[in-house]
């Protein structure tokens, strides 16, 4: 019963959803201010969400109906679990378990997978193209992301629980003072940009060419769930970085989010092949150097 409360209300689904939607507003507001616009009011993401709930849901002809509706639910469940695990480590460390770092790593792939599933189930060529791009992007960023996430594990001598990592950083200072961790932090911020499909790597849902990619056929409540998934993920991924690199110092979270938003607003979109070359080339190389340095103890 207590676990259900943790998962559904605080600190899991509901709490993170509200915070995530507020962050979406922050993103839109900062974007607007950087373009010398005024931007939407703070409750805009909530209005969007409730509006979408009241709209007609269209089931595309020629698509797979079950997968079409199943995919968004999978995505939102996964991010809700991630948020529960991450917040519980910060709020009630006794509730966390050994190996939750790996659980979070696995679950963080699922939102992208849900877009892929939904895109292929739509039976729309644009959605299929978006899904296939999402898949290519996933294959490109996963390797450097996992390499960079395992650097704190190497530095702490093989701790694979988030709670253990936080405890270790409380005793011996945050990991970010190591050179290897600085490199890893840079790499993981770039990877997160791709995980959230934000602008330099938003070719899977490029609005101008693919008409929002894998979500082309979604409307009404299903689309609302996708938007919610994205909003929650927008909070969870920076939170994950805060836990593993900054020792759970939650007041540093806004800075990571600010960096992500500014990166988003100051970059053009790159093609999917350029993204793959970028991730498999320089980014993986930097991550590999960081792993090497970490083994040497720097």
């Amino acid at each position: 019963m207590k676990n259900v409360f943790y998962f559904l209300i605080f600190p899991g689904f509901l709490f993170t959803a509200i915070l995530g939607l507020l962050l979406t507003w922050l993103d839109r507001k900062i974007t607007a201010r950087l373009q010398w616009r005024v931007g939407p009011p703070w409750h805009q993401p909530f209005l969007d969400f409730f509006k979408l709930l009241g709209k007609e849901i269209i089931i595309p002809e020629g698509g797979s109906v079950f997968v079409f509706f199943f995919a968004p639910v999978v995505g939102v469940t996964a991010v809700a679990v991630i948020s529960t695990v991450l917040w519980l480590v910060l709020i009630a460390p006794a509730q966390s378990f050994n190996g939750d770092l790996i659980v979070v790593l696995y679950l963080s792939i699922i939102p992208a997978l849900s877009v892929i599933l939904g895109g292929f189930a739509s039976g729309n060529p644009l959605a299929s193209l978006g899904a296939s791009r999402e898949m290519k992007l996933m294959l490109s960023y996963e390797l450097p992301f996992i390499l960079s996430v395992f650097i704190p594990v190497i530095l702490s001598g093989g701790l694979i629980s988030l709670n253990g990592l936080i405890g270790y950083q409380k005793e011996s200072g945050i990991f970010l003072r190591h050179i290897s961790c600085m490199l890893a932090f840079m790499v993981s911020i770039i990877c997160i940009q791709a995980k959230l499909t934000l602008v330099p790597f938003d070719s899977p849902e490029a609005e101008t060419e693919l008409a929002s990619g894998g979500l082309v056929e979604y409307s009404g409540a299903a689309l609302a769930i996708y938007k919610l998934t994205k909003a929650i993920n927008f909070l969870c991924m920076p939170l994950f970085l805060t836990v593993i690199f900054l020792g759970g110092r939650i007041f540093l979270l806004p800075f990571i989010i600010l960096v992500i938003i500014i990166l988003k607003n100051t970059n053009p979109r790159i093609r999917i092949d350029q993204a793959a070359v970028f991730f498999w080339g320089p980014v993986t190389a930097v991550a590999a150097i960081a792993v090497f340095l970490a083994f040497l103890g720097f």
């Binding site: 616009r37 005024v38 939407p40 009011p41 805009q44 008409a211 929002s212 082309v216 056929e217 979604y218």
Partner: peptide, 12 residues
């Protein structure tokens, strides 16, 4: 966007 109006890519 002050009034919540944004351009979307898909007619759905």
């Amino acid at each position: 966007e002050r009034f919540g109006i944004v351009l979307v890519g898909s007619v759905r």
